[in-house]
Amino acid sequence: MTTDHPNHARTCDQVRANPKFQRLTRQRSMLAWSLSGAVLAVYYSFIMVVAFAPAWLHRPLYEGSHLSLGMPIGVAIILLSWLLTASYVHTANTRFDALSVQILQETRA
């Protein structure tokens, strides 16, 4: 898409002025920052435990187990990251895409 088209600037201004576009950018930004904060909190909490209480992660999962407590915690962190990513993709593909289509239709009309 080239930006040399004479109506391009006017179209961009119409999109930016649309209240639905402003709502879309606000919602998308809030969701992205919230999920980023959750992931960072989980990862940094894990790193803090590794740094300051590593013996806690070395404890056996149960009496006589060769599996340490740190393994399922690591797996849970990875699964949480996947779930948060899936949540964002689902929201983007349903709510955000639908709102984007509405904005484009209103701009073309």
Rank of each mutant, 00 (worst) to 15 (best):
residue 103 I to M: 00
residue 60 P to Y: 10
residue 6 P to C: 02
residue 75 V to H: 02
residue 59 R to D: 15
residue 86 A to C: 03
residue 41 A to D: 07
residue 64 G to M: 02
residue 81 S to E: 07
residue 34 S to Q: 09
residue 51 A to Q: 09
residue 61 L to I: 05
residue 44 Y to R: 12
residue 30 M to R: 15
residue 3 T to N: 05
residue 71 M to W: 14
residue 11 T to C: 06
residue 52 F to S: 10
residue 87 S to Q: 11
residue 1 M to R: 15
residue 6 P to E: 01
residue 36 S to L: 15
residue 39 V to I: 12
residue 51 A to Y: 12
residue 109 A to L: 13
residue 54 P to A: 04
residue 47 I to V: 14
residue 9 A to M: 10
residue 96 F to S: 06
residue 44 Y to A: 10
residue 87 S to M: 11
residue 68 S to Q: 09
residue 91 T to V: 07
residue 8 H to K: 08
residue 11 T to V: 10
residue 31 L to F: 05
residue 82 W to I: 14
residue 84 L to N: 01
residue 40 L to E: 07
residue 13 D to L: 12
residue 89 V to Y: 01
residue 30 M to V: 12
residue 102 Q to C: 05
residue 23 R to A: 11
residue 91 T to W: 15
residue 93 N to H: 02
residue 8 H to W: 15
residue 68 S to Y: 13
residue 85 T to H: 10
residue 89 V to H: 01
residue 54 P to Y: 11
residue 13 D to A: 13
residue 60 P to A: 04
residue 38 A to S: 05
residue 103 I to V: 01
residue 3 T to Q: 10
residue 42 V to F: 06
residue 65 S to Q: 09
residue 51 A to F: 14
residue 3 T to Y: 05
residue 60 P to R: 00
residue 72 P to H: 01
residue 96 F to A: 03
residue 41 A to P: 09
residue 1 M to K: 14
residue 18 N to W: 00
residue 79 L to N: 05
residue 68 S to V: 11
residue 7 N to G: 15
residue 71 M to F: 13
residue 42 V to N: 02
residue 44 Y to F: 13
residue 86 A to S: 11
residue 47 I to E: 11
residue 31 L to H: 06
residue 32 A to Y: 07
residue 62 Y to I: 06
residue 12 C to V: 15
residue 71 M to A: 14
residue 19 P to F: 07
residue 80 L to T: 08
residue 98 A to I: 00
residue 96 F to I: 04
residue 11 T to L: 15
residue 75 V to W: 01
residue 51 A to V: 10
residue 81 S to W: 09
residue 76 A to C: 02
residue 1 M to L: 13
residue 24 L to T: 03
residue 44 Y to L: 14
residue 46 F to V: 04
residue 72 P to T: 09
residue 61 L to G: 00
residue 87 S to P: 10
residue 48 M to E: 06
residue 54 P to F: 08
residue 106 E to L: 02
residue 2 T to M: 12
residue 42 V to D: 02
residue 86 A to W: 12
residue 97 D to P: 00
residue 37 G to V: 09
residue 94 T to W: 02
residue 35 L to D: 09
residue 48 M to G: 11
residue 100 S to M: 05
residue 33 W to F: 11
residue 46 F to A: 03
residue 69 L to M: 08
residue 29 S to Q: 13
residue 74 G to I: 07
residue 29 S to Y: 06
residue 96 F to P: 05
residue 50 V to P: 06
residue 58 H to L: 13
residue 82 W to E: 01
residue 37 G to D: 01
residue 36 S to K: 12
residue 31 L to W: 11
residue 9 A to V: 08
residue 82 W to R: 05
residue 50 V to F: 13
residue 85 T to F: 14
residue 11 T to I: 13
residue 100 S to G: 00
residue 79 L to I: 10
residue 37 G to L: 11
residue 77 I to H: 04
residue 57 L to Y: 00
residue 84 L to C: 07
residue 65 S to F: 12
residue 91 T to M: 12
residue 107 T to I: 01
residue 66 H to L: 15
residue 107 T to A: 04
residue 67 L to T: 12
residue 55 A to F: 12
residue 57 L to E: 04
residue 74 G to F: 09
residue 33 W to H: 07
residue 35 L to R: 06
residue 18 N to K: 03
residue 82 W to Q: 01
residue 25 T to Q: 14
